[in-house]
Simulated scan of single mutants.
Amino acid sequence: MKRFACLLAAVLTLCGCGIEPSEVRDEGRPPVISYSPTWVTVYLLRDGRLEPARIPVVSDSAKNIIDTLFRAGKQPPKPGLSSALNDFSHYDSEATRYSSTVRRDDLEGDLGFRLNVIITGAGKISRAGLAQITCTIRQNKQESIWSVEVTRLFPGRPESLGEHTCFEYRKLAAKGVRLPP
């Protein structure tokens, strides 16, 4: 019996798996995941007026959009554009849900979101800086973000800079620019 088992093992070893060995063949370049950026609109300043600029981002999350706005101010995509945010940094962003208070048993009462943008930096942020943040978020997240609240965290005491919509900054728009609601 042992002899038979050894003979069977030898036959199976010689037969192999049924795949014939071959030489290494070059089949071209390896597969690569192609990256296609998402484009967002950020609001920068030209002569103190809000002007849109399209910039690629990794994703259109609120955090990426705000990070892109702060970076774009330091390296404007077009000549003549600037930012009122250069002395500040984006620290964090957090969305909170608005809810209706009409009826307590109304489970469908959620209406939209408020985005709290937390910044750091010394000094007072200008009206144009608040407009840049608010209108950039509203342009790219019109359906879900209804208002933007800006909070300066440090240095010093944390300070709420209020809750805003882009509509209140309509007079800061450059000629021919239509701001989001």
Rank of each mutant, 00 (worst) to 15 (best):
K2I: 14
R3K: 12
L7K: 10
L8F: 14
A10F: 10
V11I: 15
C15I: 15
G16M: 03
C17D: 14
C17F: 14
C17L: 14
I19P: 07
I19C: 12
I19F: 13
E20C: 08
P21F: 08
P21N: 08
S22D: 12
R25D: 03
E27I: 15
P31S: 08
Y35N: 06
S36F: 05
T41E: 02
V42G: 05
V42C: 12
Y43T: 01
Y43F: 14
L45D: 02
L45M: 09
L45T: 13
D47Q: 10
G48C: 11
I55Y: 07
V57I: 06
V57L: 13
V58S: 12
S59E: 14
I65G: 03
T68S: 15
L69N: 03
L69D: 05
A72D: 08
P76N: 06
K78M: 08
P79N: 04
L81C: 11
S82I: 01
S82C: 00
N86I: 12
D87R: 01
D87I: 02
S89M: 07
H90L: 09
H90R: 05
Y91H: 13
Y91V: 11
D92K: 10
D92W: 10
E94I: 11
E94N: 06
Y98F: 06
S99N: 10
S100D: 13
T101S: 13
R103H: 12
R103F: 10
R104N: 10
D105N: 13
D105M: 08
D105H: 11
D106K: 05
L107R: 15
G109V: 05
L111R: 04
L111H: 07
L111D: 08
G112L: 09
F113L: 15
L115E: 02
N116Q: 03
T120N: 14
T120L: 14
G121H: 10
G121C: 08
A122C: 09
I125N: 11
R127A: 09
L130N: 05
A131W: 04
Q132I: 01
C135E: 01
I137C: 02
N140T: 04
S144W: 12
S144M: 05
I145P: 00
W146L: 05
S147H: 01
E149W: 03
V150F: 06
T151K: 06
T151C: 03
R152E: 09
L153R: 14
F154R: 13
P158C: 07
E159D: 09
L161C: 10
G162Y: 01
E163K: 08
H164Y: 00
T165F: 00
C166I: 00
E168K: 02
K171G: 06
L172T: 14
L172R: 12
V177H: 02
R178S: 06
L179Q: 00
P180V: 00
P180W: 00
